[in-house]
């Protein structure tokens, strides 16, 4: 089993490259050749495949919070009060 602290030293260079660049990879920020090199390694390396899946799951989770947030009634009241103090004329009060 890999120990936490010595992972970078014990990883093969190809795996270290995945660790270093995985976010640029999943974000689609790598150039085509670099992305293909990582994709080929990930396809045949189970640890790196799991790591990539983990990263995608993590970003999926954050993306799932993306729904447009609605302002609470309290926030709406505070905003309207601030604007009225500036001279804004509400249309539908």
């Amino acid at each position: 089993m890999l120990e936490l602290a010595d992972v970078p030293a014990t990883l093969p260079p190809e795996c270290q490259e995945v660790v270093r660049h995985v976010w640029d990879y999943v974000d689609g920020r790598l150039d085509a050749a670099h992305a293909e090199r990582l994709r080929a390694h990930i396809a045949r390396c189970e640890p790196c495949f799991k790591y990539e899946q983990f990263q995608r799951s993590f970003l999926d989770l954050l993306g799932a919070m993306r729904a447009k947030p609605a302002a609470s009634r309290e926030l709406q009241d505070q905003v309207v009060a601030a604007l009225i103090a500036e001279g804004w004329i509400p249309q539908e009060l």
């Binding site: 089993m1 936490l4 602290a5 992972v7 995985v22 799991k50 790591y51």
Partner: peptide
């Protein structure tokens, strides 16, 4: 690299895919 390495090791140990 140490921080991401810790995450990497944990994903392997616990199957966090």
């Amino acid at each position: 690299i140490l921080g991401t390495g810790r995450v990497f090791a944990t994903t392997l140990r616990e199957g966090l895919d």
